[in-house]
Design a protein around this nucleic acid. Sequence first.
DNA 1: ACATAGGGGACTGTTTCAGTCCTATATGGG
DNA 2: CCCATATAGGACTGAAACAGTCCCCTATGT
Lengths: 159, 159
Amino acid sequence: MLRISKMTDYAVVLATHLAATEGPHAARDLAVQTQIPEPTASKVLKKLARAGVVVSQRGAKGGYTLARLPEQIGVNEVIEAIEGPIAVTECSDETTDSLCEYETNCGVRANWQRINVAVQRALSEITLADMAFPGTAELVLIARSSQEAERLRAAEPME
Amino acid sequence: MLRISKMTDYAVVLATHLAATEGPHAARDLAVQTQIPEPTASKVLKKLARAGVVVSQRGAKGGYTLARLPEQIGVNEVIEAIEGPIAVTECSDETTDSLCEYETNCGVRANWQRINVAVQRALSEITLADMAFPGTAELVLIARSSQEAERLRAAEPME
DNA sequence: ACATAGGGGACTGTTTCAGTCCTATATGGG
DNA sequence: CCCATATAGGACTGAAACAGTCCCCTATGT
């Protein structure tokens, strides 16, 4: 689950860059500034536009702009724009009408909703503004997390 | 990101099943009870044992048991047991020695740590006990949390 | 000793991912 | 009006990860 795809990484980088520097940006410029290969950056920006995270202006002097203020866009929106709706198992995905044949298992799997909600909530609380302009309090949190990562890594051998 | 793999789904189902019914269980029995193909269930259980989520007893009358009480095992442990450490981008993964050549981008990508921490915290707060025996209080919390996420976005996040 | 049950890894077909490229469409400026 | 610019959308490909199975080894209770 928690290994994010490169495309999503790019999306966050691009969106954060848009948040940090106001005004319309051509895909080419964004690609150069973020060191992301141009056609790939373009692809990502298209998806962001489709999802309503950014707005696009076609034609000469066109480009991309954030659809809303950075404080009003959670990273969950950016992630979902690339990876689709956050639905963990088919069983917990309400768009599919496929009912579980095994009631006993469904009882267990229905709890995936808890996990979905918890993760989505955590992601929605981080906005592009937080990503673009991290305050000192946030930086402390980041520093602490790296220690925590050490601890977790020592506890279990990696593969 | 947030589409979980089937293996991880299996892992949670198996671990939850172990939490719900105390005592040692053979992989075969667990596979039958959870409707998971036997060799696959066995593979998952091996990983859970490696990660220290469950303990195994070899030989005749052997089987698997939870390593700790259900309340003491967060679903993040189960997920990490299958998918490896929660590290989102190479840049934020400290096991790789590859330093970012582009300082400007690194500044942006370092913020992935925020996301990692937020997600991991959310997952660690859900235990196998919650999954096995969801109480009414928890269900209320789920319903409330989605509304709360909206409200919390305006305020400063977390402690 | 023997049947039982997990440990570990090799192997394979399928799917997804990352990245590129091509064509169509919209738009501003000379 | 025409052209350079810039996004929209999708087709295509090689590489990598996933899901699942199978085999051989080791441990253990009867």
